[in-house]
């Protein structure tokens, strides 16, 4: 008989157990608390951005300047936002291949004992505070990286990104990006290792039985299989890179002049480091507001990068034909 059936409520029956109900409600409440905190931070920072926009307009986002002695004051963080992205890109270009190779080595090539040691070392590396990495970079990495940059400039200087006009090879986006890579590699490696180790053995068997080598197996089977997880690891690393403050502060010379692409030229930008470099001396309400607004836009930038990354994942998520 059509039209007479009564749809039964299976969902609430599935959670009818009392313990389950309490558990569900607690979890839901906690999840909403997390969301509420996030929303609170956004609103607080956003509220600071409003008066800044009223005073400076869109030029706060499109220009690069920081001179509060003039009237009206001149402030623009474009170079800082752009610098944050540039440093992250440099960091990723170094960190992704290094981390993937390390993870592949640990999962598929290293003897188990060595893999175990490496796993622990990598996990420890992820836990090093960034101020330590900053100090290390300032005293140890700087002179070494300077040599690399001079070599890069000597042999590849004809490529625009390796140009250097000032003769000063310190405080460059390259060194800062390299420091970010050092901080991202343990995160991306740890996640990729977990993901690759979970490649189903039957898929590896299938690849072997079809004459696959380790490299073709990785390329066509293991990496596509773990793609989602690996990209997740990269996003975790990138999150740390975009927000990284103190380590960058040690090695990057912040200049209010957009350095578009000369990565081994002294001077660059980073929103987070801008904030820390200016916050100590900031006195008047306006400067504090400007810095908080910068924080807000760093937050927005992070969101945008995440959205773009998600789009990339779903694009490349197409099946191999």
């Amino acid at each position: 008989m059509a039209g007479t059936e009564v749809m039964r409520d299976l969902q609430s029956a599935a959670t009818s157990h009392r313990g389950d109900r309490i558990f569900n409600r607690t979890i839901t409440a906690l999840a909403f608390t997390a969301l509420a905190v996030l929303a609170g931070i956004t609103v607080f920072l956003g509220a600071q951005a409003v008066p800044v926009f009223q005073t400076l307009g869109i030029s706060y986002l499109t220009t690069t300047a920081w001179d509060l002695t003039t009237t009206p004051p001149q402030a623009g963080i474009f170079g800082m936002l752009y610098g944050s992205v540039l440093l992250s890109v440099i960091g990723l270009v170094i960190a992704i291949p290094a981390a993937l190779l390390l993870a592949i080595f640990m999962v598929f090539l290293a003897p188990p004992a060595l893999a175990k040691v490496l796993t622990n070392v990598v996990d420890l590396m992820a836990a090093i505070p960034s101020v330590i990495i900053g100090l290390w970079a300032f005293y140890i990495l700087n002179p070494v990286a300077e040599e690399w940059e001079i070599l890069l400039n000597q042999y590849l200087g004809f490529i625009p990104i390796f140009q250097n006009n000032s003769g000063n090879f310190l405080g460059t986006p390259f060194i800062a990006g390299f420091v970010l890579a050092i901080m991202m590699i343990p995160i991306i490696t740890a996640v990729s290792r977990e993901v690759l180790a979970r490649t189903p053995p039957e898929l590896i068997n299938a690849s072997e039985s079809l004459g696959g080598s380790l490299w073709t197996m990785l390329r066509y089977v293991a990496l596509p299989y773990g793609r989602g997880g690996i990209v997740g690891g990269i996003m975790l690393g990138l999150g740390r890179a975009l927000g990284e403050t103190i380590a960058i502060f040690f090695v990057l010379k912040i200049v209010f002049d957009t350095n578009w692409y000369q990565i081994i030229e002294s001077g660059g930008g980073s929103v987070a480091s801008l904030i820390v470099s200016k916050f100590g001396e900031a006195s008047a309400g306006l400067e504090i507001q400007l810095l908080l607004a910068a924080g807000f836009f760093l937050f927005v930038l992070t969101l945008i990068v995440n959205v773009i990354a998600n789009l990339i994942v779903s694009r490349t998520g197409r099946l191999q034909r």
Binding site: E202, G211, G212, T216, Q320
Partner: peptide, 20 residues
């Protein structure tokens, strides 16, 4: 054990890719 990241067609041809 078909490869989940490949289409039906991709699976049939996967041996060619894997072995070169």
């Amino acid at each position: 054990n078909p490869f989940p990241s490949m289409t039906i067609r991709g699976n049939v041809l996967s041996g060619l890719k894997l072995s070169g």
